[in-house]
């Protein structure tokens, strides 16, 4: 696999092209997974723990990168390692295990709330089940807009819509449907109370 600089990876990761994004995720996997797996294994984790923690860290990193104001002030390895360390410490604490870790490399501070996204809340799970019922086009439009943070013009291009306006209409309709389903759901009705 070709060598990519951190800047190239970051730019590919935030590009509107999903294939390019996945290519960069694969590059990140190839460059950093064995390092993280080694770290987790030295700190009482299994290879399955390593894969799970590393994947969660990549999700946190991706979401950070997609916010408009993200600046990388260290190497990607340091950033991912810092996330993995915090996630693994949290998991050890939850299992009431020893929580002293000898650092492999230097780390940076990660805000706890950016790690919190990994824990899906009960209400989000119910909404996710409703989204499953929306149909694949709606799922795609909504995740491209709210999760991948693409602009309407980019969504229209990705989904082969005739115009940006078609994408806007589609998103509005999908949100209307989702809202109706939420308000119809006995488990979620209290949201508007």
């Amino acid at each position: 696999m070709d060598q990519f600089s951190d800047e190239q990876i970051l730019s590919g990761l935030t590009s509107e092209d999903k294939n390019r994004r996945n290519q960069m995720l694969k590059v990140l996997y190839t460059q950093h997974f064995s390092f993280i797996a080694n770290f987790i294994s030295k700190n009482n984790g299994t290879s399955a723990d390593a894969a799970d923690i590393f994947q969660d860290a990549l999700i946190v990193f991706y979401e950070k990168a997609k916010t408009g104001n993200f600046t990388l002030n260290c190497t990607i390895r340091t950033f991912i390692y810092s996330i993995c360390k915090n996630l693994w410490l949290n998991r050890l604490r939850n299992h009431k295990k020893q929580t002293t870790i000898n650092d492999e490399i230097s780390t940076i501070a990660i805000e706890p709330e950016s790690l919190d996204v990994i824990n899906t809340k009960e209400r989000q799970k119910v909404i996710m089940q409703l989204i499953e019922k929306l149909g694949s086009d709606c799922q795609k439009v909504l995740t491209l807009y709210y999760f991948d943070r693409l602009r309407m013009k980019e969504i229209a291009e990705q989904m082969n819509f005739a115009s940006e306006q078609v994408a806007k209409n589609k998103k509005a309709k999908c949100m209307q449907k989702l809202r109706a389903m939420i308000l119809d759901s006995p488990r979620l009705k209290d949201i508007l109370k």
Partner: peptide, 14 residues
């Protein structure tokens, strides 16, 4: 709430 649900859905997909 809707947006957070969609984000959680996106995370699951990723």
């Amino acid at each position: 709430e809707m947006q957070e649900g969609i984000e959680a859905f996106g995370r699951k997909d990723l």
